Computed example of a mutant assay.
Amino acid sequence: MDIETLKSQEETLVWPQFTASDALDLGQTLLVMARKDALPVVINIRTPTQTLFHVALPGATPLNDLWARRKSATVLTYHLSSLHVGERMRASGRTLADDGLDPAHHADHGGSFPIRLQNGLVVAAVTVSGLPQRDDHALVVKALAWRLTDAATI
């Protein structure tokens, strides 16, 4: 996926507000989508200081929890999707370590997306881990688009 598409997703998928109730609704949307296809994923929604939603579906492993934590830390640091950060890093030949970040705590692989308010503030990260990184990212984007438009069916 190219950087312009990722940038467009981040500019489009914004919230007027984001509450703990919104996190629960988004998490449940992801849960329904993942269960529908029996996906072995971890779903996590967190702010910089609090976990708002977390579930590990059958087939997910503790390693998926670690990946979710690392990907969401990247989102909360850069205020970009983890796939966007990774694509930028690869395009520039840089790594997270070049920015002083420990790869034990951050990951630039797809699957985590910023919860950005209309005023530009990033308040949380929504993350899926357990699939190939582009599939993790696509699932999150699909759920965000559905929650923000209420127009699609799961």
Rank of each mutant, 00 (worst) to 15 (best):
M1I: 02
R90C: 01
K71F: 01
H109V: 08
L52F: 01
D2Y: 00
A91F: 01
D65I: 12
R46Y: 06
T19M: 08
A152N: 03
A91I: 02
A145T: 15
T47S: 12
L31I: 00
A151S: 13
S81N: 09
H79N: 14
Q17T: 13
D102R: 04
H106C: 11
Q50F: 00
V140C: 03
I45V: 12
L148K: 14
K7Y: 03
G120T: 03
L30Q: 11
Q17W: 02
T5Q: 14
L13N: 07
R147N: 15
R134K: 14
M33R: 15
V32F: 04
Q17R: 14
S82K: 06
G110C: 01
G110H: 01
T95F: 10
T127G: 03
V32G: 02
F18Q: 10
A68H: 06
P132I: 07
N119H: 10
V75G: 05
G93L: 02
T5V: 14
T5G: 00
L66A: 13
V32C: 00
G120Q: 13
I43T: 08
S112L: 05
T95E: 12
H109Y: 10
S81K: 01
V75H: 03
L96Q: 05
V140G: 02
S21G: 10
T12H: 09
T61A: 00
A151R: 15
F18R: 12
L101D: 11
D65L: 10
A107G: 11
I154P: 04
I3F: 10
T47Y: 09
T127A: 05
T29F: 01
